[in-house]
Design a protein around this nucleic acid. Sequence first.
DNA 1: CCAAAAGTGTTTTAGCTACACCCATGA
DNA 2: TCATGGGTGTAGCTAAAACACTTTTGG
Lengths: 233, 233
Amino acid sequence: MGVIGGNSHLNHLAYDCVIFGFSDGKLKILILEYFDTGLFALPGGFIRIDEDLDEAVKRGLSERTGLKDIYLEQFYTFGAARRNQTGEMAAILKANRSDLSKLGWILERMVSVGYYALINAEEVEPQPDSLSDSCKWYDIEDLPKLIQDHEEIVNKGLSVLQDNLDKKLQGVNLLPEKFTMNQLQKVYEAILGEKLHRGAFQRKMLGLGNLERHEKKFSGAAHKAPFLYSFKH
Amino acid sequence: MGVIGGNSHLNHLAYDCVIFGFSDGKLKILILEYFDTGLFALPGGFIRIDEDLDEAVKRGLSERTGLKDIYLEQFYTFGAARRNQTGEMAAILKANRSDLSKLGWILERMVSVGYYALINAEEVEPQPDSLSDSCKWYDIEDLPKLIQDHEEIVNKGLSVLQDNLDKKLQGVNLLPEKFTMNQLQKVYEAILGEKLHRGAFQRKMLGLGNLERHEKKFSGAAHKAPFLYSFKH
DNA sequence: CCAAAAGTGTTTTAGCTACACCCATGA
DNA sequence: TCATGGGTGTAGCTAAAACACTTTTGG
């Protein structure tokens, strides 16, 4: 088993997570920057020997965001033989003067299970881990160069999210408990990367039958106050 | 590393494959029966240390079916901590008097990547492996009880196949090179588990624009001879 | 000539788009 | 009263479903 901080993990298996958030009308994801290397990566982690895969991911996300009950979806498993043989992880460990006799297993061939998470970016103060300098939101349209195949992981995750958008009304997970129809539409537009028609969008969402209408929101702006909605559980 | 026949494999990682075929108007899958145990399972296997995940699955399927270029789709990774701690694999190894000092790693916690394959059942004489008695087609509606979580794997695989059916015209992979529209419709009905409207189905398939029409097929039956179609590559 | 199944034309329906109108709000 | 954005009604379009008519085949 690989050992991190005294815990044993499955060798050769990892997860990487595309954590989507929404702010300033843009779709963003959380990216780690490693100390002294200028290398950027998705948050990821390893699976303890007696831990469910899903639990491992929840644990990792909770450490990174402080949130419980995150909306999570597994989307693909990346298993190319040399996908992490790029030297980047070695550089990261070296910059941290890590003990390779204990952490060397991280450099071996690694199959990674891709997950995406949807969170309300406003509620979170992202936390870097012990190897990383910062953990920040990046606009999905303007990501830094990522290590290994992480760009492919992001693209695949976004593409699956887009496909799932219709079936599952996932957009609500990126917003506060109560939100206006306009906010929801902005989320959909950001995910799909295209403008949607206002009237049609409103009718379609209400037609799904799982939105509940609440009081109006008086924003102080000079126009009719919109209703607030929440998702029916 | 785990060792089978002198080759080294990734520990704690496996794949299981739902191999769909179509015959007698029914959707079927390939199921192995293990020697002297009455235990049934999906065909699966392990990943060599330097082998792409996809390659490992192709290799395994080719051993089981003799086919190259099988249509394959990865659909989910099953990672519950105790999913294979059911004692069934131990019974199988014991019935085969296997050397546990070499094969014991198979009994440890195993994360499994689920794939489905679509093949033309008529072209194949399925081959059991060294541990299994038989490898036979079973009607998807009438499967034997399977070991571990293999029933869940089948259900998830079928459900993803159903979802993908529209986007990818996958049905053709279950048929010979040339087929009639009625055969194709029967495949769709078997996968979706519902009757489809003949006229609408024909129009929809032709409307996709990737079917090519060939000569008519004279079956000897007392009705109009249908055209044969093939898939445009 | 008949029954059965195939191909295709026509009608009906449903969902979505686009446009437009009116309403509420705060400046 | 005006500009702005929100809710909703309506007309038009398009794709799919349902129906039906015609054709081909072998008995």
